[in-house]
Structure formats: structure tokens, C-alpha cells
Nucleic acid binder design. Structure first.
Length: 289
DNA sequence: GTGTTTGTTATCAA
DNA sequence: CTTGATAACAAACA
């Protein structure tokens, strides 16, 4: 369940490891995971290199050095996608980590992997095959970003004024708003619940009923929750690992997600779980109003 | 066999 | 046309 903090952690780490390194070979083990013709995919990427890695919401965009027809490789991890890198030395040691905490590669869920000229390898694993890799032109990339992604949190575009504007002339509840990528991008089920807890607001509240003070609290909580989660290198609940195959530690700091039946860390009320907006939704029965 | 997990899209209704 | 609510999908596990 990689959301903004998890995808950003991968972006930052991976960029340092692979930027500018020439791609020597690619193995496509599951053609379904690549949304281009395999021959196109190989022709464009072999002998090319990734200049840098951008991110919009939960979508990674690898900028190609040689950018003719295709300028970006889009990678969406969806529910269970992973991007794991091993350098030459790690691979010579068997490719497998010495610590049980780290995912071994390749494994039965490896769908695509890249080998670089320096001997390093990048593995795309995806248990449920929902994620994808897709080459697009500069124009396609810009169109996709413009049509599918709302305000990007943690950037100068995310102002209180821009956030307040999302609440105008709209009739929905706060959780659905937070999950709507076209309005605000990068928040998924875990952080939507955590943000509502931080603001002491029930996820089911209609946005029309929220006071301007409550909207302001939500705004601040979006920044706070996402920043702290990034500092903790993301939340590993099921499948998420960073580009070293290592878990994030933010699960230890979750206040509501996955804590149903347990006591609230602050008010000692009980954490409840309901189905809302089609998703498991967690909240403190006492301190969220 | 059943229920559960979620990011995204498809579909239908208002 | 816009918006919103819900279903569906994928795959594995308890």
C-alpha cells in the first residue's frame, strides 16, 4: 500500500543509486506488467539511462536521458509493487540479504528486472500484478499529470487557500475528499485515517459541516502526518519495502489504522473500524468528533 | 468456500 | 456536464 511517503522514500533512495547508470539488459518476466510492446520497451531502454526520478502523487516518473519518442518511464506500484535495488557487491554475496528483515530478490513475484553496466540490478516485484511500467512521451506524461492529479502536498502549490477551495460547491465526506487523487494527490487509506485522527475529525463527516477552523486543522495535519511518515521511511503494513528491501518504521507511530479494538494512545477510548467510502476506516470513538 | 485487503477505473444515478 | 456513490478488478492468505 505505498502512498505518498512510501513512494517518496523510494524515489529519493533510488535516484542516488541509479541516476546516470547505463542500462545493459532488461528481463520481462510478466508482459502484463509492462504497458508497452516488449520490443519497444527493450529498444528504448537498453543503452539508455535514467537522468532523475520525479514523483506526482503515488506515481513515479523516471526521466530518460535519450528522450526521442519516449521521454519518461512511469511506474505505479498500486497495492503490492516494490522496487528493490542490489549493487554488484550485494549480488555477488548471493543477491540475498543476510538479515531476515530484507526482501530477497529475485523471487516469485519479480515481474521485471533491469541490469546496469556497473553490475547493479533493479527488481520490480508485484504480488498482485496491479502495478505497471509504462513508457510515455513528454506530452503524454504532461497530459496524464494534468488530468489525474490534484494539488501536490508538501509543495508550494499546497496552500491553505488552494485546500479550502476543494471544499467549495462539493457534497461529499472528508475521507472521500482526501482519497480523491484528482483533488489532492498522494493520500491513500492509511494516511487518510491518520490525518482525520490528527485533526480530531470523524472520517464520515460531510465537508459542508466542517468549520473553517477544522479545515485549517486538516490542512496542517496533512503536512504533519506526511512529513513524519517520510521521516520514518513509510509504513510497512503488508508489502511495502524501500529500495533496499527494508521495512519502514512508521507503523509504530500509527494512531488508528490497523489498531481497531485497541485503546487510543491519547484519550484511552477504543479505536473502531467501519466500512466507509468502500474502505476499511479507523477512528477513535472518543476524541474524533 | 468466504471474507478481507486497497489504488484506480468503470458504471450508473442524480 | 458534473458530481458522487458503489462495484469491480487483481491475487493471496487466514
Amino acid at each position: 500500500m505505498p502512498e505518498l511517503p512510501e513512494v517518496e522514500t523510494i524515489r529519493r533512495d533510488l535516484e542516488k543509486k541509479i541516476a546516470g547508470e547505463k542500462i545493459k539488459n532488461i528481463e520481462i518476466l510478466a508482459t502484463k506488467s509492462v504497458h508497452n510492446k516488449s520490443t519497444d520497451f527493450l529498444n528504448v531502454l537498453v543503452d539508455n539511462n535514467f537522468k532523475h526520478i520525479e514523483r506526482r502523487g503515488k506515481l513515479l516518473m523516471f526521466a530518460l536521458d535519450k528522450a526521442d519518442k519516449y521521454a519518461f518511464l512511469l511506474v505505479h506500484l498500486k497495492m503490492t509493487g516494490q522496487l528493490i535495488y542490489r549493487n554488484k557487491k550485494q549480488l555477488l554475496a548471493g543477491g540475498h540479504s543476510q538479515t531476515a528483515m530484507v526482501t530477497n530478490v529475485p523471487n516469485k513475484f519479480t515481474r521485471v528486472f533491469f541490469t546496469f553496466n556497473d553490475g547493479g540490478q533493479l527488481f520490480f516485484n508485484d504480488l498482485r500484478r496491479f502495478g505497471y511500467l509504462k513508457l510515455v512521451s513528454k506530452e503524454e506524461k504532461e497530459k496524464i499529470v494534468a488530468n489525474n492529479f490534484g494539488i501536490e502536498p508538501l509543495t508550494p502549490d499546497f496552500t491553505l487557500e488552494a485546500f479550502v477551495r476543494l471544499f467549495k460547491k462539493r457534497q461529499t465526506n472528508i475521507k472521500a475528499l482526501l482519497l480523491n487523487q484528482k483533488l489532492i494527490s498522494g493520500i491513500g487509506n492509511i494516511y487518510a485515517d491518520e490525518i482525520c485522527f490528527c485533526a480530531k475529525i470523524l472520517p464520515t463527516r460531510k465537508i459542508i459541516d466542517l468549520s473553517s477552523l477544522e479545515i485549517k486543522k486538516l490542512y496542517k495535519c496533512i503536512e504533519d502526518v506526511l512529513k513524519i511518515a517520510i521521516a520514518n521511511r513509510g509504513t510497512t503494513f503488508n508489502n511495502y519495502v524501500d529500495s533496499d528491501g527494508q521495512s519502514g518504521s512508521h507503523i509504530n507511530f500509527l494512531n488508528v489504522y490497523g489498531r481497531d479494538g485497541e485503546k487510543c494512545k491519547y484519550c484511552k477510548g477504543v479505536i473502531l473500524k467501519i466500512k466507509h467510502a468502500g474502505r476499511g476506516t479507523h477512528f477513535c470513538s472518543k476524541c474524533q468528533k
